[in-house]
Amino acid sequence: MLLIHCPYCEEERPELEFRNAGEAHIARPANIVAESDEDFEKFFFIRANTKGLVYERWRHVHGCARFFNAVRDSVSDKFIMTYKAGEPKPKKLPGAGK
């Protein structure tokens, strides 16, 4: 069971309180009706599923109930960092290069 740092609760909490919510930084288009079929496909159906660093959404569903984002290594399962929903992708990752 992982420990996950909730950016709203400001501490690490057991994984049992959380739920993964898929890839992060995929914004719903503001004018979604105008999207082409191809763009809608990319938006809704296509996911990167990267090996290595992944940007994910999590929800502290049995805690503060907030959605937030996480950078995680999909090979080691380790969380690199977490940050609040709506914040941009972090430019610098802690411990990068390790």
Partner: peptide
């Protein structure tokens, strides 16, 4: 409830 919270918090905050 989760679906509604998801949209509220992340798409229509």
């Amino acid at each position: 409830m989760n679906h509604m919270e998801d949209y509220l918090q992340t798409e229509f905050p």
